[in-house]
Design a protein around this nucleic acid. Structure first.
Lengths: 66, 66
DNA sequence: CACTATTGTGAAGGACGCTTTACATGACAA
DNA sequence: TTGTCATGTAAAGCGTCCTTCACAATAGTG
């Protein structure tokens, strides 16, 4: 599942470390999601969307929608 | 994380088995999500929202939003 | 009664999400 | 060169997601 996390983070000038702290996850988790190694859990996806004030569908891209 | 899956399914008169087949998961997975035993993965949450033609936020309720 | 449909749950196993610790790289400043 | 920051990745461990097989309980039908 694709996502726009790196672009959203870069647009705010945040490091992975800073984003991880705001999300209360490890820096490695942020990195893994950005590099597509795995998808976040649903609760973490909610926290990410809320932090960026976007809908989950605007952060994560369903494969069936391209 | 709370969700409205049971109500959405009931509104369409579907059994857990029928919903599970449409989502391509097991009946036990549907039951576990409905009874709150665990949250779905993000990809499955997308499939559920798409099936009901709703936003993920309209199916699953973030704890931080009550 | 027997039979079916629906739902809830348990156990065991595989794959994934997230952690901590750790090491390596490249960019940039002193 | 030395030091720091940001990033990428690996390993080990734990809990979660999802599976199959299985059994129980309830409700409705014959």
């Amino acid at each position: 599942m694709d996502n726009h996390l790196r672009a959203l983070r870069a647009a705010r000038g945040w490091s992975q470390q800073h984003l991880a702290e705001r999300l209360e996850v490890s820096r490695q988790s942020v990195n893994a999601i950005e590099t597509g190694r795995y998808d976040p859990s649903l609760p973490l996806a909610f926290r990410i969307a809320e932090l960026f004030e976007l809908a989950i569908e605007d952060v994560f891209v369903s494969p069936s929608r391209g």
